[in-house]
């Protein structure tokens, strides 16, 4: 366990070296969210309404999406791809460390600084649009929301991990990475709440794992999910399934790596 704590600490320090880029990234995302909040205000101001959402629910949805996008979603596959392609993977073959656990730790620690910043930024935006934030009526909702977000974090990481492993076989993984990113953007509910989709698309989205990353946690926060426990169970099944897939892909990848070398 201690080795992962050290990995956590060292990577955290490493990511602090890039604090300026992180600040810049958050600024960019803040810009994006601010524009969307202007958009919703304008739409509701003209007398429009998006499905079952009130203006404050819509504002809250995007404010939470803003936080979840940084805290829950993972972008670690870029590093994994470089790692494998540049031959650093050899170091892992000879060290007593679990590759999955290593990257999970890197993923967590890499987010720490970003999380602090994003919460500050969200609080800042929250102050401006304060009256429009829809807080849960039942305090227990906060706990279920945190559990849901935690499950989302694990699942998001596993998906990224699998994509990164494609680098064992292909040089150009970029396209797959973007595919996952777009799938998340669309089917996780980052772009729009999934229940605003046309029925057929909403059905598809409800059968995919991506909804547990963004949409379901936010719905739980907005108290629009009737049975959070059933959601947890479903997310858990996905987590186990994708974990087994990742193990299998990694094992095949190692065989391939040993055969081809790098």
């Amino acid at each position: 366990m201690r080795k992962y704590l050290t990995v956590f600490r060292v990577n955290w320090q490493n990511s602090l070296q890039y604090r300026a880029p992180t600040v810049i990234y958050i600024l960019g995302y803040t810009l994006y969210i601010s524009v969307l909040l202007f958009l919703w205000t304008a739409i509701y101001g003209e007398g429009g309404r998006m499905g079952p959402y009130s203006l404050s629910e819509m504002m809250t949805y995007y404010l939470l999406q803003f936080v979840i996008n940084s805290v829950v979603l993972s972008y670690v596959s870029w590093e994994i791809i470089d790692h494998i392609r540049e031959g650093f993977f050899s170091h892992f073959l000879v060290k007593p460390i679990n590759y999955f656990a290593y990257w999970f730790t890197i993923n967590l620690s890499g987010k720490l600084f970003e999380t602090v910043l994003i919460l500050l930024a969200a609080a800042g935006i929250g102050l401006v649009v304060g009256p429009h934030v829809a807080f849960p009526s039942d305090p227990r909702t906060y706990a279920t929301f945190l559990v849901a977000a935690g499950l989302g974090l694990v699942l998001a990481f596993e998906l990224e991990f699998c994509i990164g492993l494609i680098a064992f076989w292909l040089i150009q993984v970029r396209v797959f990475k973007y595919m996952l990113q777009y799938a998340v953007f669309f089917f996780a509910g980052t772009l729009l709440p999934l229940d605003l989709f046309p029925r057929a698309l909403a059905e598809v989205a409800a059968r995919l794992p991506f909804q547990y990353l963004v949409f379901v946690p936010i719905q739980i926060f907005l108290e629009k999910r009737p049975a959070p426990l059933a959601d947890f169970a479903a997310a858990g099944v996905w987590i186990v399934a994708v974990y087994l897939l990742a193990r299998w892909v990694l094992a095949r990848g190692i065989v391939r790596y040993e055969a081809v070398g790098n």
Binding site: E46, G48, M50, L192, L196
Partner: peptide, 11 residues
């Protein structure tokens, strides 16, 4: 398209 399914104009 989804937005305009709910509203007729934006701004």
């Amino acid at each position: 398209a989804i937005l305009y399914a709910n509203v007729t104009t934006i701004g």
